[in-house]
Amino acid sequence: MDDHWLVRATTIRRLWIAFAVVLVAVVLADLAIEHHPYFGLDGTFGFGAWFGFGSCVVMIVFAKALGAVLKRPDTYYDS
């Protein structure tokens, strides 16, 4: 029943391709502009990209680990 154009496999593949192109483009944009880093690491090539990706992975893994300890069924406080 789900035949909306946005959820078709071909659309999703195209969206991924477009996304990938945009990702490459914003990293390559670093070649064209001059950054003014405050510190040092923030002046490395594609800093926003690898730092953003890396910190998200760390946060997700940390959240997952915390969840393993602190997650409870959502009826926990009802009883």
Partner: peptide, 26 residues
């Protein structure tokens, strides 16, 4: 844009880890 779009990439690549469950966090 780099920061946010690559954060979005991390979200969709790790979607399996982010699926919601019927839980709360203490």
């Amino acid at each position: 844009l780099q920061l946010l779009l690559f954060s979005g990439l991390a979200f969709f690549l790790m979607l399996g880890w982010l699926q919601r469950t019927l839980t709360i966090t203490l």
